[in-house]
Design a binder for these strands. Structure first.
Ligand code: NAD
Ligand code: NAD
Lengths: 210, 210
DNA sequence: CTAACAATGTGAATTAATTAACAAAAAAAC
DNA sequence: GTTTTTTTGTTAATTAATTCACATTGTTAG
């Protein structure tokens, strides 16, 4: 397979999420336009994405839900599961653990870290909380590859540095403070204010357009 | 001004966030490459974006931080502030309220809604929590334009329908269930699993590439 | 059996976003 | 006071992403 576009990767993850729901409902096949409807995109786009990963459906019957889920898994998942950690067990950290727990997934949250003694030693949804001081040790011990940062913004940089030092391979940064990492560490950042301001902008635009 | 690219809107919001920090530190001017560094993009891209909004810096001195913040505000903010509500005061809802409170912003969270009687009537970071039953009434009374959905996935559709009925103009959906809204309502959806799977994919790619 | 239909798959065209390349000019160096 | 440096602003080129247009082919209807 050649290079999959960035956007295709994101959509494959979304397709799978939708497909898993279909599977649960007992649906065996699905048309490109049905997937498209769910994701608010066009049917061509869905077909193009599936073409890129080399999956062919059945003419007039659509795509086999189970097969497609499996193929997407082969593309985007790793062979072995990937261990994930959450740094900062505040509101957002808890929301995340809560959200992930129960999801059958190759991504497993196996540890969380905090500096607050009240949180250290607790377990939430089966995920133990360790002291940040032990981060490097535990990341190596448990072979943790990814980290989700939900510490206060002021601790963002130092946390990122510590993660890099511990040999983490990918970081999802939810603090509003962009961090710097060496290029061999994959970094994704997200801020809700940006999303909300974007919504606000387009609402304003809609209104002024009538 | 002509059409601003989607991505430019997002970046303007991010530039502003970074610029506000610079302003706090007393920095009066900033170069395009400094902004670029913070956002992990190129300097040309920054200059291009600023060109699109018609802002010109001073040659050799860079951009005036204060002026630029103000101009970005004129572009992406509404004249009057915009009232925002959060639907579902669970972990994620609380994380959001917590995060927004204290931010001086034209976006004001003025109400939250829940169905849990324990939460209804409480106030968090100055934001009162109302019963979902009163949603339409309060959204109209308080002139709430935007809503952030953080209800359990199973309630996503019905919540979106209720919001549309209440006359909401924009929705930011954080449930993992895509919802349908009429085209005059601007919808933005985000799911952390997609982001995390994307990170995992590129980490895997990095590894296999050596 | 044949025509109309409804779906997939994909090359070509289009549109969106980014990057390259460089002119212009202020500031600094000499 | 001239040259070099550094930064902005912008046109042109490139790359990425999406959409169009349509060939193909099972399926259904008549
Ligand atoms: N990206 C977004 O969209 C978004 C949304 C909401 C909140 N946030 C951000 O996420 C972060 C967390 O938000 P929250 O509401 O959960 O905050 P919070 O204060 O509830 O939680 C922060 C947690 O981090 C812990 N902590 C502090 N320093 C630490 C360190 N050095 N190492 C490990 N843990 C440490 C604290 O003890 C606390 O438990 C903040 O930076 C906030 O601004 C981002
Ligand atoms: N998009 C993401 O990245 C992301 C991340 C974490 C969680 N989530 C999702 O966000 C949602 C909330 O997560 P959470 O951890 O805060 O869950 P939670 O269970 O802690 O909170 C949900 C809240 O919604 C309330 N609620 C239930 N039905 C309601 C209704 N009809 N109207 C109003 N309120 C209602 C509940 O009483 C509860 O307080 C879930 O759908 C979860 O899957 C999304």
């Amino acid at each position: 397979m050649k290079h999959l576009p960035h956007k295709t990767i994101e959509r494959l993850s979304q397709y799978r999420r939708a497909l898993l729901i279909c599977l649960d409902k007992g649906q065996t096949h699905i048309y490109s336009h049905e997937i498209a409807k769910i994701q608010h995109i066009t049917a061509v786009q869905v077909r193009r994405d599936l073409m890129l990963i080399g999956y062919t459906g059945t003419l007039r019957k659509g795509y086999n839900v189970k097969e497609l889920i499996e193929l997407i898994g082969e593309i985007i998942d790793s062979q072995e599961g990937i261990n994930v950690s959450i740094i900062g067990m505040g509101n957002l950290g808890r929301a995340l653990i809560n959200y992930f727990s129960g999801k059958r997934s190759h991504l497993k949250i196996v540890a969380s870290f905090d500096i607050n003694p009240d949180k250290i030693g607790n377990t939430m949804s089966g995920v133990p909380c360790y002291s940040s001081d032990d981060m490097e040790k535990i990341i190596r011990e448990k072979d943790i590859k990814l980290a989700i940062m939900t510490v206060p913004a002021d601790f963002a940089s130092q946390t990122a540095d510590a993660l890099v030092k511990a040999g983490i391979k990918g970081i999802l940064n939810y603090t509003p403070k962009p961090v710097n990492v060496p290029k061999e560490v994959y970094l994704e950042e997200y801020d809700m204010i940006t999303s909300l301001e974007k919504v606000a902008f387009y609402v304003k635009l809609n209104e002024s357009a009538g």
